[in-house]
Every structure is written in C-alpha cells, then in structure tokens.
Amino acid sequence: MSEIIILVCLLTLGYYFGQRAETKHYKSIIERENQLIKLPLVTLKTPPAINQYEVNSALVSGSVVISIDFFKQFIASLKMLFGGRLTTYESLLDRARREALLRLREQAKIRNAFVVLNTRIETASISKSSGRREGSIGSIEVIAYGTALTMTSRRRHNTR
C-alpha cells in the first residue's frame, strides 16, 4: 500500500514540476530564438565568397544536459508496451536540441559572427542505467558545434 502512495506522490510531483519546467523552458526558448533569428546556422561547408573583407573563423559549440521527469518516464514506459509514438520523449529531445542550438548561437553572437557553417548536432544518452529501470533514457546530452565566421578589417591586398 505504501509503495502505491509513494508512486502516486512521485507521479504528482513529476507532473506538476515537469509541466511547469517545460512551459517555462519553451517560453524562454521561443523568446531567445526570436532575438537571435538574424544569425543563420547552416549545414553547408563552403564559405560565402567575400572579397572586400578579411574573414576569420573559430569553432563554437553549445551543449546541454536535460532530464525527463518521473511522470513522463512512467507514461513512456506504459506506452512502450503497445509501441507507437512516444510524444513525451519527443518534447524532451526537441527542447534539448533547440537549447543547444541557442547556446551555439549565443556563443557565435559574442564573437560577432555573421554565419555559422557546418552546424552539427550530436545526441548522447548519459546515465543510461543509473535509473530504476534498465535501458531507460533518464537524461540526454545534446551538443551542437560549428564554424563561426567573422568579418574583421578591410583586406589590404588581394590574395585570391
């Protein structure tokens, strides 16, 4: 009996705090995305041809570790019996990727970059089996990195 009470308690706590954290996070993501919308992130590898200015490059990256709440994990484990879309995990991964990309953009913005080339996103699942069930995701890490290009001074001599 006491086990059920604990489970219900954890589920309620997870639901309440998880929902609140997610709404807040999405709100801040959308707000910051609107601020940084002018900085393009591309997956192209060729730099644009700019002759008048000297172009400098630097590696920038952004990473985030985000964890799922107990309620969503519970729902997902129930859904895994029947298969199909796990919408609870979808929102977790979406949040993590967008947050990592935002941090990448912020890093590029600090350097005054005008474009980020060859943006790559990598996802790694950490603390795989420290949770209660074997093989449950728990928390994921997303890292985004790319080459930020900055225009500095006017080129003195034409090398190309």
Binding site: L13, G18, H25, S63, V64, I66, S67, I68, D69, F70
Partner: peptide
C-alpha cells in the same frame, strides 16, 4: 530525474 529540467552540474 523526478522533477525534470536541466542538469546544469552535468552540463
């Protein structure tokens, strides 16, 4: 892991 959210120590 119960409450969800970012694990800034890990980040």
């Amino acid at each position: 892991n119960i409450f969800g959210g970012e694990l800034s120590a890990y980040t």
